[in-house]
């Protein structure tokens, strides 16, 4: 099991790669929204299911409805991309993208999907590009969830280790922000570690 351990160097690499990926994503969204996005330092942690639950509980407001878009990506490095926007942010996004005062629910949903699409493809593509691997995206799906209960209750859902990569996308002038989670589990963690090791070897060579 030692080979799956992440050192602070590994976490640092992941954080920096995520930072670069997020930079690209922010620029893409800034293009779409014609606005300037504030960049935040990505959070990286290795956790179990309970840890993920409590992390999400802290990051996502419990007293609001949120648009939660989940998209799977697969390949050597695979996982789940989760983007969470509060009702208000999503409505602002719909309002902006569809150029209507009161966007319909369908407008908002489509806008959220579109934003997630850009975010996930830019972030994951950039991240995997830096790790010298390719990735396949699966169609995203969005649901509106009351509170912050984003994780299914089934008992089988008991991964031992999960990597949580999360950051905030924020466009203050449009009052649009969202929480990004990239989750990957068990076997993928090992592969991710190998990819990072290669990266570190290149660097210290």
């Amino acid at each position: 099991m030692e080979s799956t351990e992440f050192s602070s160097d590994h976490l640092d690499v992941l954080r920096e790669l995520m930072n670069i990926a997020m930079g690209n994503a922010t620029a893409s969204i800034a293009d779409l929204l014609q606005a300037f996005g504030t960049m935040h330092i990505p959070h990286i942690s290795i956790s179990d299911m309970d840890g993920l639950k409590s992390y999400i509980e802290e990051a996502v407001p419990s007293d609001q409805h949120s648009y939660v878009t989940k998209q799977l990506f697969g390949g050597v490095f695979g996982g789940e991309f989760v983007f969470v926007m509060t009702n208000e942010s999503a409505a602002n996004l719909g309002h902006y993208l569809y150029d209507v005062d009161v966007p319909s629910d369908a407008d908002i949903l489509d806008a959220v999907i579109e934003l997630t699409n850009i975010l996930s493809s830019t972030i994951i593509s950039r991240l995997t590009e830096e790790l010298n691997t390719k990735v396949q995206f699966f169609p995203p799906s969005t649901e509106i969830i009351s509170g912050n209960n984003l994780i299914s209750q089934e008992e089988t859902l008991n991964y031992h280790r999960i990597i949580i990569v999360s950051t905030v996308m924020e466009f203050q002038s449009h009052k649009i922000s969202g929480q990004i989670f990239i989750l990957t589990k068990d076997g993928m963690i090992q592969r991710l570690r190998e990819l990072i090791d290669q990266k570190l070897e290149e660097l210290y060579a």
Partner: peptide, 22 residues
Amino acid sequence: ADIQTQAQERVLALGAKLMVPK
């Protein structure tokens, strides 16, 4: 990593000599 045009404009206005994307 922040490669937004606005970020670039801002740092140049503050006196940075150059801005290079990560």
